[in-house]
Design a protein around this nucleic acid. Structure first.
Length: 423
RNA sequence: GGAGAGGUGGCCGAGUGGCUUAAGGCGCACGCUUGGAAAGCGUGUAUACUCCAAAAGGGUAUCCGGGGUUCGAAUCCCCGUCUCUCCGCCA
């Protein structure tokens, strides 16, 4: 959620920046600012009346104490009208605050200057590409056929147990999952990210803290009896660890990582996008999260992207880095880099990581602040990135490293898998 | 799931309707003192919103959250929530 301060001080620049998302924010901005003005006016009024009430109550107390009963009673009966006025204005102010809050929640984050204008993923900017696409020849198989041939994943068993999008990993397929998780966690640890194992179900406050609620309510599984949400990413519990906190500046940066399964309803998805491992309701991911001083957050973002690229390099997968355009940028993000790996049999790029700087957008919802050099509380910047999401990595590993004698495990992963080929 | 006890500032803790502008202590910061330190003494020590061109300085709110009673609530009442203790169930 954007701060009111930004709206008040920087309205025109904000409108300009938001236009990169392809939205006309002017009506919303005007509405919020009008509500703000009315709210402040109402507050002044109600605060003055309350001051009057407080003073009068003190006087009445004094009168009772000094035995001037009649005078006190007289003052007391006068207070009724004042009370009623305060009550009415209080209610009005509450309504205004709620309307303002609701409107602010509908406003997405302000895109960074680097964000290119654009409508869809076709307008994303490729900022780097590395690695060579393998030549597989005639007999190359897509990962879902490889998974079946080598008995790595049983999609049909998953359908029986749960439904489409819930794969069952078995044998070397299961071991490969565990190896990748361990590999990613070790590398995050080496890069200074402290490991956490958070809850996989979170309350609505946490959903709101990172912005999943109310924006993406329909994408999360919800346990209605207990009002808990299955996490769509470890970002939610990890970032909420610091909800409501006032940090000391020397505590920053805070670097966290965690492995969790992720649950997504993916309502409305269909076709080749959901074939095999391309899109699932449950998948595994290691997430990295940072809390930063504002002046460091963009350097931190670059560092996170480099960290993820390093993982993909060691998995010997061709990778390209995209800077998302305004139309494709997530609601809460100011700048996002997507990392994609080449899926050699499907002959398409698959998104495996999304690394974002949210600036103060999440921190404002979370009320996560630090004491700046002047000793004043100031909102931190939050960042996170997948490092990494497993399913599409597995898809690319199987497809790109397939050969006549089976699937080759990249050297960096062999100590984790305990085997060097799947045959 | 049942019964009971609780939730007060960064921390501990007093506080049963106005004498609370939340006592007292600890911690922290600054000053005095000192050759230097400690001790001692003194001063200060929240957050949000808001008024004022700004600074200085005001106002309002906040004692887990929400609602209520009252001229006036940390204090009384109701609802919620969390923690602890006991019982039950249980990997």
């Amino acid at each position: 959620m954007l701060t009111l301060q930004v709206l008040r001080n920087d309205r025109d620049a904000l409108e300009q920046a938001l236009s990169k998302r392809g939205i006309d924010a002017a009506p919303m901005l005007n509405r919020i600012l009008a509500l703000d003005e009315e709210r402040r006016h109402t507050q002044k009024e109600v605060d003055d009346l309350k001051a009057e009430q407080n003073a009068a109550s003190r006087e009445i107390g004094e009168l009772f104490k000094s035995g001037k009963k009649e005078e006190a009673e007289a003052r007391r009966t006068e207070m009724g009208a004042l009370k009623e006025k305060i009550h009415v204005l209080d209610e009005h102010q509450k309504t205004l605050i709620n309307q303002q809050e609701d409107a602010l929640l509908e406003l997405p984050n302000r895109p960074h200057d680097l964000v290119p204008a654009g409508q869809s993923d076709a307008d994303n900017e490729v900022v780097a590409e590395e690695g060579t696409k393998p030549e597989l020849g005639e007999h190359a198989l897509p990962h879902w056929e490889l998974a079946d041939r080598y008995k790595l994943i049983d999609f049909e068993a998953g359908v029986k147990i749960s439904g489409a999008g819930f794969p069952v990993y078995r044998g070397k397929g299961a071991k490969l999952q565990r190896a990748l998780i361990q590999f990613f966690l070790d590398r995050a640890d080496a890069a200074g990210y402290e490991e956490f194992i958070p809850p996989h179900l979170v309350n609505p406050d946490s959903g709101r803290g990172t912005g999943q609620l109310p924006d993406k309510e329909g994408q999360m599984y919800h346990c209605a009896d207990d009002d808990l949400y299955l996490i769509p990413t470890a970002e939610v519990p990890l970032t909420n660890l610091y909800r409501g906190d006032l940090l000391k500046s020397e505590e920053l940066p805070i670097q966290l990582c965690g492995y969790t399964p992720c649950f997504r309803r993916e309502a409305g998805s269909y076709g080749k996008d959901v074939r095999g491992l391309n899109r699932l309701h449950q998948f595994d991911k290691v997430e990295i999260v940072r809390f930063e001083q504002p002046e460091n957050s963009y350097a931190a973002l670059e560092g996170m992207v480099e960290h993820v690229r390093g993982l993909l390099r060691d998995l010997e997968l061709p990778v390209r880095t995209l800077r998302l355009c305004g139309g494709d940028l997530g609601f809460t993000s100011a700048l996002t880099y997507d990392l994609e790996v080449w899926s050699a049999a499907q002959e398409r790029w698959l998104e495996v990581s999304s690394v974002s700087n949210f600036e103060t957008y999440q921190a404002n919802r979370l009320q996560c602040r630090f004491r700046n050099a002047e000793g004043k509380p100031e909102l931190v910047h939050t960042l996170n990135g997948s490092a990494l999401a497993l399913p599409r990595i597995v898809a690319a590993l199987l497809e790109n490293h397939q050969g006549p004698d089976g699937i080759r495990i990249p050297a960096a992963l062999r100590t984790y898998t305990g085997f060097d080929t799947i045959a």
